[in-house]
């Protein structure tokens, strides 16, 4: 399979008043076409920087970001993004919010087709009947569903998810994980998910990349060998529990507090 997202030796630092603050160091991540990769790591290790680099909103100091065989130099229309904050436009209805990317990417697309496309996605995430509501009339989970629809309405090759489920309560979050699997079954996209939630990473991803503390580099890569589409019960299988334990240990190492020797327990 071709590498749809290919991050090659990316090093990046922020300019601050007290000199440059390195956030990424020689980072390599490759995501094959159609795959779902999760990136986990300690807080403030530069995960969000990574999303902005892939989207072409920022340029790395060193190294290269390639999408679908082309080097990223500026924003590309084949990318969809969703953030922790659903950032829906309050003056638009849910339907109009979902249509927004089409107005930029496909300005000539007939209105009826735009609406049909948005309605199809809203139905897929269980928001039928809420098309004409304003974002302020919806719950946090519903807003995030609409935000996911907006991220994929223009059929992007690459979906960048920057902790989109992070601010939701636990049950709503699990609902949205399943929605994510439903979307993957219907829509072909390659995803990179930034998250703090190890269960989320194991449940959703084919591969989990653990980043080290700042400046972040690839510390560990976990292949998640669980059949899809997954049900929540899969998280309680021995295999998944084992994955979670491995990731937990890796995070502690990344945080600089490696657990005491294995035998001590």
């Amino acid at each position: 399979m071709t590498k749809l997202i290919d991050i090659k030796g990316v090093t990046h630092a922020y300019k601050t008043a007290s000199g440059p603050l390195p956030v990424l160091r020689d980072l390599n991540i490759a995501v094959p076409e159609g795959a779902f990769t999760a990136v986990v790591g300690p807080s403030g290790c530069g995960k969000s920087t990574l999303t902005r680099l892939i989207a072409g909103l920022m340029h790395p100091d060193r190294g290269e970001v390639w999408l679908d065989g082309e080097r990223v130099k500026s924003p590309r229309r084949t990318v969809g993004m969703a953030f922790q904050n659903p950032v829906l436009l309050e003056w638009r209805t849910i339907l109009q919010n979902v249509i927004l990317p089409l107005e930029i990417v496909a300005p000539t697309m007939p209105k009826a087709r735009r609406i049909a496309r948005a309605e199809e996605l809203l139905a897929l995430v269980g928001l039928s009947g809420f098309e004409d509501k304003r974002p302020s009339e919806l719950s946090g989970g519903m807003r995030q569903r609409a935000s996911l629809c907006r991220a994929i309405v223009h059929r992007p090759d690459v979906l960048i998810l920057d902790e989109p489920f992070g601010a939701l309560d636990a049950f709503t979050r699990e609902d949205l994980w399943q929605t994510m699997h439903a979307l993957r079954a219907e829509e072909p996209f390659t995803s990179l998910l930034i998250t703090h939630d190890l269960r989320e990473s194991v449940f959703l991803a084919d591969e989990v990349v653990v980043l080290s503390g700042r400046p972040a580099t690839t510390q560990y890569v976990l292949d998640v060998d669980l059949p899809g589409p997954r049900e929540l019960e899969v998280l309680y299988t021995p295999k998944a529990v084992d994955y979670l334990a491995t990731l937990r240990r890796q995070i502690q190492i990344a945080q600089g507090r490696a657990p005491a020797s294995q035998g001590a327990a």
């Binding site: 989207a55 904050n85 950032v87 436009l89 927004l100 990317p101 990417v105 223009h154």
Partner: peptide
């Protein structure tokens, strides 16, 4: 204006 608002359109090349 929160940067994410800008990013959702900027990332599409607007």
């Amino acid at each position: 204006l929160e940067p994410e608002y800008r990013d959702i359109l900027r990332s599409l090349g607007a």
